[in-house]
Each structure stands twice: as C-alpha cells, then as structure tokens.
Design a protein around this nucleic acid. Sequence first.
DNA 1: CTCAACCCTCGACCAGCGGTTGAGGTCCCA
DNA 2: TGGGACCTCAACCGCTGGTCGAGGGTTGAG
Lengths: 213, 213
Amino acid sequence: MLRLLQAEFADVTISKIRFLESEGLVTPGRTASGYRKFSAADVDRLRYVLAAQRDQYLPLKVIKEHLGAIDRGLSPAAAGPPVAPSSLPQTPGQPVADDFGAAGTELRLTREELRSAAGVSAELLGELESHGLVVARGNHYDGDAIVIAKVAADLAGYGLEPRHLRAFRTAADREVGLIEQVTGPRRTEQTGELAALTVRLHTALVRSRLPRP
Amino acid sequence: MLRLLQAEFADVTISKIRFLESEGLVTPGRTASGYRKFSAADVDRLRYVLAAQRDQYLPLKVIKEHLGAIDRGLSPAAAGPPVAPSSLPQTPGQPVADDFGAAGTELRLTREELRSAAGVSAELLGELESHGLVVARGNHYDGDAIVIAKVAADLAGYGLEPRHLRAFRTAADREVGLIEQVTGPRRTEQTGELAALTVRLHTALVRSRLPRP
DNA sequence: CTCAACCCTCGACCAGCGGTTGAGGTCCCA
DNA sequence: TGGGACCTCAACCGCTGGTCGAGGGTTGAG
C-alpha cells in the first residue's frame, strides 16, 4: 500500500504515515500481531490528506478538521482565493478581527484624515458625530472611527442612515457598562478578554436569529 | 497604516511587516531619510498577503508567486479542494467564525451533543434556554448554539450569569429586526452582508467605548 | 530451526518557516 | 534638546512536520 501511494505522491514514507496516524489523521486497523492493516477507505483518506497538503498547502490541523467535517457528513468550507489587490473597493470585507488587546499607541487622525481614510463625506461624518457614533478624543480620532465610518457608509447604501444606527450606540454603551461592572472602570487584562467574549456572544446571537437560509 | 491593517488583521505587527518586506512580498517606498512610506497599493498588497495567510493558510513562498502572477497580469491559480474520500453525503459546510454567508445544511445536534460540544453543564444550558439565549429548532441545535454556550460558560467564569446576558438577546433581536426591515423577512444575498456590516459596526463601537489602555 | 526482511514503539533529534527581540543608531518635532 | 518613533541587522525562538535509530517482535523461505 505504501507503493500504491508512492505512485501518486513522491515523498510519502512509512514514517510519515506513522506520523500522520500519531496525529490522528488516519486510524488503520491492526492485525493480531499489531501490524497496521490499511483498508481502501484508509488509503482514500491518506490520499485526501496528501493531496490537501501538496495542492492546497493546508496545515495538518486544518486537514484534520476537514476530515472531521466530512465524517460528520459535511463538506469542508473551502475558502476562496482572496480578492486581488489593486481593486480598490475593498470595503465590504471580513468582520473586524476580535482583537481587544491593549493596542500599542493609538492612531491619532485629524478629522480630515479620518474622512479620507474612511472615504466618507463630511456630511455623513457630521451626522455620525451628532448621533454619537463617532466621537473625537480631544480633536483626534482613532482607528475604530475609521471602521465605524466605513461601515456606516456601506450601510447607507442599504438605506440605513446614522439616525437608524443610534440603537447600536446604546447597545454598545450598555455592553461596555456591563464589562466595567465586572472589571472596574480601569482597563485591565480582563477588559479585553471580556469584550472579546461579549462581542462573540453578540455575533453568534445575531447569526442564530437571522432567518434561516 | 499599521493601525489601519490591524483593524482587519488582529495579529499584524510592525516586525511582521518588516519581515514580509525582507521576504520580498512588499517593497514600500522610502522617504529621503529611510522611513518606509506605504502607498495605498502597498497596503492592498499587504491585505492580500495577510488574507491569504489567514484564510487560505498559504505559505509565503506561494503567496509571493501569486503576487508575481498578479503583477504580470495573470490571476493566481486557486487549487480547488481535493476530492473527498469515500464520497459521503456531500452537504455544504458549517459556517466558520464570523461567516454570515448562506450556510448550507445546518449542523443538527441533540441537546446532549450540544452539551458535550460546548462543554457546559446541563444546568447552565437549561438557564440559557430559559433566558432565550440558546433556542432549539424542533429539538435540535445548530453551530451557533455551541458558540453561545461556550462563551456563556466563559462569561460565567467572570461572574456573568445567563440572566445578565438577556440584554444581549434583545440587542441581537433588534439588530436582526432592523436587517429584516431592509431586506425583508426572507433570507437573501443581502441578509448576510448586512449582518456582517452591523456586527462589525457593533464590534468597533464596543471597542471604541472601552476604557483606553 | 534459522535467517533475512519486515514490522512495531518510543524518544531523541532536526530543518525550515514565520516571525520576535534587542542592541545600537538615526530622525524629527514640540 | 529630549523622547518617541523609526531604522538595520543578527541572534534567537516556538511550532510544524517530520526523520532516525535503538530495541524488539513477526513472518515466510529454505
């Protein structure tokens, strides 16, 4: 069976297969005396693993998850290729990464810098400020303001204007209030962790309540 | 510009970017005094690199080839996912993390499976249900329920119990209500996009309102 | 029964990737 | 003119994905 796979994958060795087994990617049967006995299904599985490594460069951890998904009757989500650069309208992107750790020095943008970084009109920005969505700290704005302004601009494209977004502000305020009740008003190690958790909770709740596809 | 990318990719650091430059993946301009000066195109390029790493697990060597191909006007060959072994019932995948795209077949877990997947006590799960945080759909639970239950368990470690989390439920309901006002009660292409946007808005708002480090 | 050719396990070791760290120095503007 | 942000370069590091070898059992041909 080793020869069989070697026909297809040049660099497979016994030790590699043993290693893959030790990582839980295959679990061949055993003979009475302890020799491995590979079924056709085991060989298919190995083929899948080796192909995923060679052709998709996937790390074993991810391949293992895929196999797990396949076992449970799902098919692994194959992330498409990222959007090529130099196509400018990048805005509708991934949700913001859940990083609430202590950022280094904060970005300090002037109002004009913020406007151009987010690509929003002065008018929209004004509205966002008057509804308390974007706030300046001593006449400078930080990186979150960029994200907020960009998203607000996108939402405007769906007919949602700043005034419709006030509820988000109050929800966020309440969320932060809750966090501060737990960790106190000063920023600590826990503050970021807690924020990451609550935001995850929020995200999952929203998703779970969306109409089913 | 570092902060700009950090909004999208949590773990980018200055040293990482310098490393990427040393590997020839970006070549930002320099000021007279030797400081790096990143053009919008450079930032796009970095975005591409980081997205490829995070979402496709591509090694830098491969990403570099892709970039080279793009520069020469080609589009990078994206290897499709390998053929699944032993062709089990192929159903579209489980939504990963913050993916609001049209999920295919949902995960369907029994209560007990959910409990063990999330690692929570029957008691906690009961409370979560009675507060409407976790809901069964015809006595099965989906993947979001796992996330919700796990996070709730973590939050319990901070003294936040299910009853403290009701506000999250109502906030999520309102958010979904708003989305449905725009896209209608049926799930469409837009529903997911809009949800991703609002969740991003929420996240950025929370972060912006956290006490400064 | 014996011997060669396999197979097993387990722990030590290893190379490369993808960065991080720190020392030593420059730049710049408040 | 002080301090914070930036520079370079070399050393270091942790993790992944294995390989190697010692020590020992199994199998089948002769």
